[in-house]
Design a protein around this nucleic acid. Structure first.
Lengths: 214, 214, 214, 214
DNA sequence: GATGAATGAGCATTCATTCAT
DNA sequence: GATGAATGAATGCTCATTCAT
């Protein structure tokens, strides 16, 4: 089981400890939804692959949607939050990652590692962001509440060092997101079978972000 | 009605002329599928928005999937083929677009115009490519049959002029696709509401492609 | 076109002359219903094979059932009536077919010829008799009104000649029907592909009827 | 509930025990299909008569056709197999039924008992044989694999005793089938309401078969 | 907690029939 | 008379969800 599958299970278990069966349900759901898409997978199918009765899913998750959220939300958080939360950015800035480049590099590589190690979860995240409008609202809100003030500080600091141009917070965010997803979506969702030189792509993504900002 | 909506309708009418009601069905289907995704839209919903009886849909389109294909296939062709078909590339090369930059610029701007003018169709295309594995196969096949030989010539020519490095055809194709979609998907599908400087993004996309190739 | 297909068309034409298209509809309907059964054939299918528009069928026949009746009723009459109607029996009795055997032979051979020459119509008749309870009522009524009195006379006459035992009219009728259908249904509907010695079977059927009656 | 309705339910229960509701579905289906024919009965109608929700039918039987097969196949086997399987024929031959007449009598009376006790099932069998061509193929195959070799032995034996003429296996089979169905179809399917002297008909059927064979 | 039979609203699809042209 | 687009009720079937055991 992957590191993050493990994390989701642990997360869920803060409130109610997950049984082995509940674990299997989550694993089966991630596999199937990632392969076929949320709408095309039936709860009966998930139950069958998980080796449990059809009703068992609904003991823990009131609805099918709840089950998806139990997968999507922590995955999404893990993927997005580090860009967004105070602690992460402070840490980065306080450390030797004191330049723009080291900061961007950490972000890109971390996102890449996640998409690579947890491709099924990454696929689910992308599917959901595309099809669920409400998620875009959540992202916007999350950005405004959590990221905006931190970004203000960060931008000021980098600008003081003459490392970046005078950008507003939204543009700063957008440039990073666009470049990261612009690499990871074709790489892991659309054309995973093509020949990719990942290291080269990562470096180019980093450089593009920096160039856009400086 | 948009230019390309119009095109789909005209296309269909080569064989069987579409009635006003059949037109309304297509328009309603594009709107709804683009908004909610193919799986989440019911034929009853499409019929209702189109102002027709549910049975009317099935007079023209044998299945719900047929209806989607009648929208998807011509849109997809319009989006992808110009990169791929002989005539287009020959034309480009024979004209004053004789340098790499002019060639790339035409491709990027054309794709951008399509995604901008026909955003609902573009959203449908992306949804389908993500969820339908068989489409990836079709793209691969289309590439091998149509694009590969033309690309060979094009690459040779550009290399002779020292405009590009020594890349194989697949890499050439991949670099273009990745960069174009890496811009257009966040721009029109994921975060259409953010503030975008389209002209700047287009230029950066062009430059990134060129840089990757040279 | 077979003799009896021709007859059905002529029959219908007593009131309204059938057009060529209406003829084609009848022909197509007989073929398809005989092959696939009434329920499994759609009016659209019949229209297509007949080379007419879907609506055309309903100009002549108000409902699909009307169309079947236009085929079934005259076919059925042709098949059953001769046993039942006065004129036929009188004719038979007045001629040199003056013995039981000649009478039975005419009936059996006529029925056989019909089933052989008009197998599709015969199949439709059998299908209908099996599935439509109201037809059994019609047969009963037809028997009581038309056949009963004639049979009374016929039976008396044959009994006077000592050719038959003392049977009531219903039994007389039943013995004939059973034996004829007991041969023709397996022969033309159930197992038409087996090797059959028709002449031998016909003779045996005749003999069985006579034996049952004498 | 009849003996064989009971058997169908038990049969099904070898693998999955049938619930009371599933039993009711089978009973309702047999009644309705026998009365109106498979095509004319809707699953909604069956569900209503069985007193269950429509979805309940499809929990056990994936399709409406599966439901019919669950009724038809064991009924058909019960009706046909004894003529066809080794054990039955051996048993018959080894016992005191050592003459042709006793053999034929067992077959005819068994078939008659089935059609009498399970008339609805018998009606369904006949409907199906008439309308489903693939069943005729199955019968042919079953005959060739199971019955043919046993018939060869049986015929040889009877011929050695001078009880029958020199007939091939197919003819032997056909004569029995034709005569049995030629009695039972008019008796139980077409005109069940006529006055029948069953004992007399059975004897005549037996005699006809013997006469045809000797 | 777990089961799986049962539910019933919802779905895509069919098709006899209508009617404006 | 003929057409064929349009209809809408009905059909077989799916599936998330419930609940008695």
């Amino acid at each position: 089981m992957s590191k993050w599958m493990n994390y989701i299970i642990k997360e869920g278990s803060k409130e109610n400890k997950l049984t082995k069966k509940q674990e299997n349900i989550l694993i089966a759901a991630v596999e199937l939804i990632s392969e076929k898409g949320y709408e095309k997978v039936s709860t009966a199918e998930i139950a069958k692959r998980a080796g449990v009765a059809e009703g068992t899913i609904f003991r823990k998750y009131k609805t099918k949607r709840d089950l998806l959220d139990a997968i999507f939300i922590p995955s999404f958080m893990r993927f997005v939050k580090p860009i967004v939360i105070k602690e992460f950015i402070s840490t980065v800035l306080d450390k030797d990652y004191n330049t723009l480049e080291s900061f961007i590099e950490v972000i890109v590589r971390d996102r890449y590692e996640f998409a690579k190690d947890e491709t099924p979860l990454f696929r689910i995240i992308i599917q959901e962001i595309i099809s669920q409008d409400y998620i875009k609202e959540e992202i916007k809100e999350m950005f405004l509440i959590d990221a905006y003030p931190v970004f203000t500080k960060l931008i000021k600091r980098l600008k003081d060092k003459n490392e970046i141009i005078d950008v507003d917070e939204i543009t700063f965010f957008r440039i990073i997101i666009t470049n990261v997803l612009g690499f990871l979506i074709p790489r892991f969702v659309l054309f995973p079978d093509l020949q990719w030189s990942d290291e080269k792509e990562i470096n180019m993504t980093i450089k593009n972000i920096i160039k856009s900002l400086s």
